[in-house]
């Protein structure tokens, strides 16, 4: 259910498996415990989003390689100096080189590893969520934080969370009021606010 647990799932399933060896097959017929570690693992695996295929790692490798190259270029422009008297660019140059080299390694050897997740239609929800955050920051300076807070909460509840209209309206009003009371009234944070 939590992302952290899902991310650990392969680890969690491999160890009991390794430790139990063939022992787990003995309890398959047990009526009290219909669920072996393997079945549970399979179930968790099903819940995992589909793998993204080899292209994902190629894309990631290309992006980080480009980052590395850009880092090298910028470090060189800062000046390298000598090992005795290093200039500002020496250290970033070393890291950028490591990054570029490892990115190439990822491109060469990492293609078969299927540890990336595919984007799906529900990824659009994430994009929409990020969009609301950007909107939130853009208007907060103009209108104060109350109206954007109300709208953001409502949007997340109604459209991303699929709550009912009534619930969404009610909850977003309560949340906004609670934030106002906490940050403006109680903590006197100098955040832009309308009221």
């Amino acid at each position: 259910m939590t992302s952290s647990s899902r991310q650990e799932a392969p680890l969690g399933t491999s160890t009991p498996h390794a430790a139990s060896g063939t022992g787990s097959s003995a309890i398959e017929a047990d009526p009290v415990e219909p669920l072996t570690a393997e079945q549970l693992a399979a179930e968790w695996d099903e819940e995992r989003p589909p793998h993204a295929g080899p292209l994902a790692n190629v894309a990631a490798g290309v992006v980080t390689a480009l980052l590395g190259v850009a880092g090298v270029a910028m470090s060189l422009s800062m000046g390298i100096g000598t090992p005795e008297r290093p200039e500002a660019g020496m250290w970033p140059l070393i890291i950028s080189l490591v990054m570029a080299v490892l990115s190439v390694a990822l491109l060469l050897f990492g293609r078969k590893t299927l540890d990336a997740e595919a984007f799906s239609s529900s990824s659009l929800q994430v994009a929409a969520g990020v969009g609301t955050l950007i909107g939130f920051v853009l208007v907060i300076g103009l209108t104060g934080f109350e109206i954007p807070t109300l709208l953001l909460t409502f949007f997340w509840l109604r459209f991303l969370g699929k709550e009912t209209w009534r619930m969404s309206i009610l909850l977003s009003a309560i949340v906004t009021a609670a934030f106002y009371l906490t940050f403006v009234v109680a903590l006197s944070v100098p955040i832009p606010h309308l009221f």
């Binding site: 300076g141 103009l142 209108t143 104060g144 106002y180 009371l181 403006v184 009234v185 100098p190 832009p192 606010h193 309308l194 009221f195």
Partner: peptide, 10 residues
């Protein structure tokens, strides 16, 4: 009270 007593800072 807050709605009436607090001025915004925008």
């Amino acid at each position: 009270l807050a709605l009436t007593a607090c001025g915004g800072n925008v």
